[in-house]
Amino acid sequence: MRTLRDVKGLRSVVAGWKRAGQSVGVVPTMGALHEGHLSLVAAAKAGTDRVIATVFVNPMQFNNAEDLAKYPRTEDRDAAMLMEAGVDLLFAPAPEVVYPDGFATTVGVSGLSTDLEGTFRPGHFDGVATVVTKLLMMTGADRAYFGEKDWQQLQIVRRLVRDLNIPATITGCATRREADGLAMSSRNLRLSAEERAVAPALHNAMAAAAAAIRGGAPVPAALATARDAVVAAGFAEVEYLELREAEGLAPLDRLDRPARLLAAAWLGPVRLIDNIAVAP
């Protein structure tokens, strides 16, 4: 596995692969890798001839300087994991490579980014959309792989690729979970032992709500019960727990089309998100 930090070198390698008729997949990450990321690498290896993984803690998508400072940075460990997983190239640029002096362009996706995560993390998705656009253009990848755990993000990336005519196929991969149901996340590393024991309550409450809704329970009542269960388990706050249209994310008060149950809640100093598919 090669490690590159400059765009010119990256493009040179990719151009060589493409001259040889090879397809290229990219797995964008912010590092602190876990099995969920490696499942994306496995999907990329199955779907393309060459695989690039990116490790870049994107300052533009953090609206809290303290959160950015605390985000785990484990590049040596990440590189070893990616090499073991069979990645061909690790692209790990410095912030000034991605955002050089005088950088003044932002990519925003209207509508999809305005509520749910957008309500509680203003500007976050502009940062995500901007860096994803840059990474797709820098790598020239044919396919990009994203986890379904960040469902709203996945829909935003799909929309920006369509709207901007970026020649890359976006592939969503199923959320990887711990044995107790907790969605794998780099932020889980910040949970204390006591908080980690409580954390699966979010998924459990969501699964119960999804089952109730599929069984015909009124949506508002099922969601209220789930929110109460999460707080009773020890979470400090539920920012949202809502049923939304799967692709367009419009609010739903009844299950009459493919939907997604999405939630965000605070457990100690850590904000956890999750989502579950709910089909009629």
Rank of each mutant, 00 (worst) to 15 (best):
residue 149 K to P: 01
residue 109 V to I: 15
residue 77 R to A: 14
residue 168 A to W: 03
residue 257 R to Y: 12
residue 13 V to H: 06
residue 212 A to N: 09
residue 230 V to N: 06
residue 145 Y to Q: 09
residue 129 A to K: 00
residue 89 L to P: 00
residue 95 P to G: 12
residue 141 A to Q: 04
residue 117 E to Q: 08
residue 258 P to N: 15
residue 153 Q to W: 03
residue 112 L to E: 12
residue 37 H to Y: 09
residue 228 D to W: 07
residue 205 A to L: 03
residue 43 A to D: 02
residue 236 A to G: 14
residue 45 K to D: 00
residue 73 R to W: 02
residue 147 G to R: 10
residue 214 R to V: 09
residue 236 A to N: 10
residue 59 P to N: 04
residue 272 L to P: 01
residue 59 P to S: 03
residue 99 Y to M: 10
residue 203 H to D: 01
residue 218 P to D: 14
residue 31 G to N: 08
residue 61 Q to L: 07
residue 35 E to P: 00
residue 42 A to S: 11
residue 137 M to T: 15
residue 165 N to W: 08
residue 276 I to N: 01
residue 210 A to R: 13
residue 95 P to V: 13
residue 180 D to H: 01
residue 154 L to Q: 11
residue 257 R to K: 15
residue 102 G to P: 01
residue 257 R to I: 10
residue 29 T to K: 07
residue 111 G to Q: 11
residue 110 S to A: 15
residue 116 L to D: 07
residue 74 T to C: 08
residue 263 A to Y: 07
residue 53 A to W: 05
residue 156 I to T: 06
residue 243 L to P: 02
residue 204 N to F: 03
residue 61 Q to C: 07
residue 36 G to Q: 07
residue 17 W to M: 05
residue 66 E to I: 07
residue 274 D to M: 11
residue 245 E to A: 14
residue 25 G to L: 04
residue 152 Q to I: 10
residue 2 R to K: 12
residue 18 K to V: 05
residue 11 R to D: 04
residue 270 V to L: 12
residue 21 G to H: 04
residue 63 N to P: 00
residue 136 L to M: 13
residue 141 A to T: 05
residue 186 S to D: 04
residue 247 E to H: 08
residue 68 L to D: 09
residue 39 S to K: 03
residue 205 A to C: 04
residue 254 R to D: 12
residue 63 N to H: 08
residue 272 L to Q: 10
residue 117 E to F: 06
residue 211 A to P: 01
residue 280 P to A: 15
residue 149 K to H: 11
residue 233 A to T: 11
residue 151 W to H: 15
residue 243 L to V: 08
